[in-house]
Nucleic acid binder design. Structure first.
Length: 213
DNA sequence: CTAGTGATTCCCT
DNA sequence: GGGAATCACTAGC
């Protein structure tokens, strides 16, 4: 018997800790995205930590800007950014307010509402690919910049809610270098995932792009 | 399976 | 103006 995931919303205290504690503790948690068409529910299987103003891989490294302002606000809120001209990615803000840190949600397993996620992810060849990768995850959940700053500690039925779920035992948590982070940002083992989970995204070393013109 | 590249827009220098 | 916390597609093994 496997116990059903705990559907109690997570409290803000959960996020008001150092990001390197929060990140592995997010694995196995349940994220509910409520849309007009119904809920889409995701079990988190892969995350990445971005640790405050001294992390050169973090969007907050060069100080507060219009884009990253949510990272400087209270923990438990969602930072959504637009990247590569086409995609959105989502983070959960951690740590004390004013210390900009967050966890990028990189992959997960859709456990409810897969029919809604499939409509947004037409190129996915199977359900394991629906949220395998940070932009795919945001796409599958219908998350875009309109949700930047949303409170993930809100009651279920709000736009986004993180539930207690089923946390992953530490001996099933793996860690490694962050994906796609340029320069010194990739040296820390701040990517965390669930061992042997088929929804975890493949590791890709950062490849610098050459100018096209 | 891996490696390479075009797409496409915003942000910051 | 240059690069970006990516994806989808292709070629080749």
């Amino acid at each position: 018997m496997i116990a059903a995931p705990d559907r109690t919303p997570i409290t803000r205290d959960f996020f008001d800790r150092p990001v390197l504690e929060v990140a592995p503790d997010l694995l196995g948690r349940t994220l509910v995205r409520t849309t007009p068409d119904g809920p889409i529910v995701l079990r988190l299987t892969e995350v990445e930590a971005y640790d405050g103003p001294n992390d050169p891989g973090s969007h907050a490294y060069r100080g507060r800007t219009a884009r990253n302002g949510v990272m400087f606000g209270p923990p438990g809120h969602v930072y959504v950014y637009f990247t590569y001209g086409m995609w959105f990615c989502m983070n959960l803000v951690c740590g004390p307010e004013g210390n900009p840190s967050g966890v990028l949600l990189r992959a997960g397993e859709i456990t409810e509402g897969a029919e809604l996620a499939r409509k947004r992810r037409l190129s996915a060849r199977n359900d394991k690919e629906l949220a395998k990768g940070p932009a795919r995850l945001a796409t599958a959940l219908g998350v875009d910049r309109a949700l930047d700053g949303t409170d993930a500690c809100a009651p279920e039925g709000s736009a986004l809610t993180l539930l207690t779920g089923t946390p992953i035992h530490s001996d099933q948590v793996r860690s490694g270098p962050r994906t796609g982070v340029a320069g010194d940002g990739g040296v820390h083992p701040w990517r965390f995932w669930v061992a042997n989970d088929p929804t975890v995204s493949p590791y890709r070393a950062h490849t610098p792009r050459r100018r096209s013109t």
